[in-house]
Write a protein that binds this DNA or RNA. Structure first.
Lengths: 152, 152
DNA sequence: CTCGGAAATTTGAACTCTCAAGCAAAGATA
DNA sequence: TATCTTTGCTTGAGAGTTCAAATTTCCGAG
């Protein structure tokens, strides 16, 4: 009673897989090469840069940057070593930690952004028509809203 | 002269990113949990299982399984330790190596497949209408055919 | 035949990610 | 106030990925 994929579904699935992997690899490679950081770190810096005070609680930051808490914790540790982020204790909750984007971190992000955006355009947007882009948006929303939370 | 993303493009980009990451995570988690292997290993086993003689040259296998040669080499080493794949020298090219799927490897794949397919359906197909699926296919093809090879 | 470059593959080190534990502080309950 | 549970975050170990540097073999030009 397994709902196997037929040939056409298989083809589409593999097409999808190859595509998303391609985009991811290009993104990661560009950032690593030109800015010396993986895409996940870039997302963390972006999230911080958009937060009020360029700072955020670790848990909130994890959600914003689409990261697990453990991953974020490790990543922030590395970013702290580079002087791009620093940690500060949270005033109203002594368990909490706040990650703050430093000026150096902001500068690193600003330096990395143009090359990254260009890669995003070349890897995705430039290949699509406005109509395709619109449908892609709908597709992503549909996939995400389906079974967002699984029982653990 | 950076071609920045406007607000709408930003939103779509992040939607896309979150979606592909979600699908990937679900895939990886399901396989790791239920079959004890990451998705990349699964793809290698699938590629081998579909090859004549259930065997393939390393380089061909790397292409088929969307892997770098280095990654494949490491992966096959691990798969060999589990007895799921073995290496054989290549007859007509002494540099070459052939990866062969063992019976145990085939059995492991067969055991993993149903759960994986179900996850694929739940994570992607079930959320989409036939029209969306068709467009998704076109989108992926468009993205992949655009700038397939970059100058290195 | 010989030399030099290209191709096939592996290896090692550095790095990131995941998972399972492990603390410490906060909240709830009695 | 004395637990008990939950929340926030970190830590360590194990595993996979990447990049650059070998290694071995093949191929073509002299």
């Amino acid at each position: 009673m397994t709902r196997w994929l037929d040939d056409e579904e298989q083809r589409i699935w593999r097409n999808f897989l190859a595509t998303t992997q391609l985009v991811n690899e290009r993104l990661d490679r560009q950032l690593q090469r030109d800015a010396g950081m993986p895409h996940t770190y870039y997302m963390i810096l972006v999230a911080l840069s958009e937060a009020p005070g360029r700072s955020m609680r670790m848990t909130d930051l994890a959600h914003r940057a689409q990261s697990s808490q453990s991953r974020l914790s490790h990543a922030v540790a590395r970013l702290e070593e580079r002087g791009w982020v620093r940690r500060a204790p949270c005033a109203d909750d002594r368990r909490g930690n706040i990650a703050v984007l430093t000026d150096d971190g902001f500068a690193a992000l600003a330096a990395a952004a143009p090359g990254h955006v260009e890669e995003v355009r070349q890897s995705l947007f430039d290949a699509l028509t406005p109509a395709q882009l619109h449908t892609l948006d709908e597709i992503c929303t549909a996939v995400r809203s389906k079974t967002v939370g699984g029982s653990s």
